[in-house]
Nucleic acid binder design. Structure first.
Lengths: 107, 107
DNA sequence: TTGACGCATGCCGATATCGGCATATGATGA
DNA sequence: TCATCATATGCCGATATCGGCATGCGTCAA
């Protein structure tokens, strides 16, 4: 999952799909990539469940299934307190924790 | 940034550093990896600014600087409405968008 | 200065990734 | 059935990644 969204083009695909399903060729065109390139990225996204596809005639429409991004959001959110404090205060905070850790028992 | 946190071990390092600064060897020990392995991952995290280091005697303490995770959090949050709806409703929503997109002008 | 410690770096081999190209597959329509 | 369109897959070369190992470099203590 984290790996799937590590690729800039795949993130662009997901952003594009927020405004609706699209066939592969259209995605490739909008992102300035080849059709096989788009298909490969879509495959990765499909394998982690971030997109789903349904066949419509000759085409295959890809749509967003962003549920897998929720864990990502929550994981990053677990660090929210660290970026909300000013960096100086954070530094002091970290030092305090370090001190407490060294004085306490093994973690 | 997204690439840096795509690695499970690097994510574990960040989680560990939430509770305080740590020297390299201790991180390596806690994560069951070799010291060079830990150093390499820390280097990647340092290059994207997710950790900072300060020298204390012979040791080098690594601390968290999670500010770079804020864009990640916000990017994933941009998909929140998609995972908050039930998947059936999401599907209808997506179909509506697709319909509107096809009826409208070129995007 | 020497030795020991903590850490970083370089090298290696194995594996994965990515883009581009050609081509296979599947569905449609004549 | 045959041609065509839309898409997927296979192959290739270039590049990146990762783990493990050895070793270099800086720091401290004696």
């Amino acid at each position: 999952m984290f790996n799937a969204i590590a690729e800039p083009q795949r993130r662009e695909i997901l952003v594009l799909l927020r405004s609706g399903e699209r066939p592969v060729t259209e995605l490739a065109q909008e992102l300035g990539m080849t059709q096989p390139g788009a298909s490969k990225h879509l495959r990765v996204l499909r394998e982690v469940g971030l997109v789903r596809d349904r066949k419509v005639g000759k085409q295959r429409l890809y749509g967003l299934d962003a549920r897998g991004l929720r864990p990502v959001h929550e994981w990053a959110g677990g660090f929210e307190r660290f970026w909300n404090e000013s960096f100086d205060r954070l530094d002091a905070y970290v030092r305090n924790l370090e001190q407490a850790r060294n004085e306490g028992a093994a973690e």
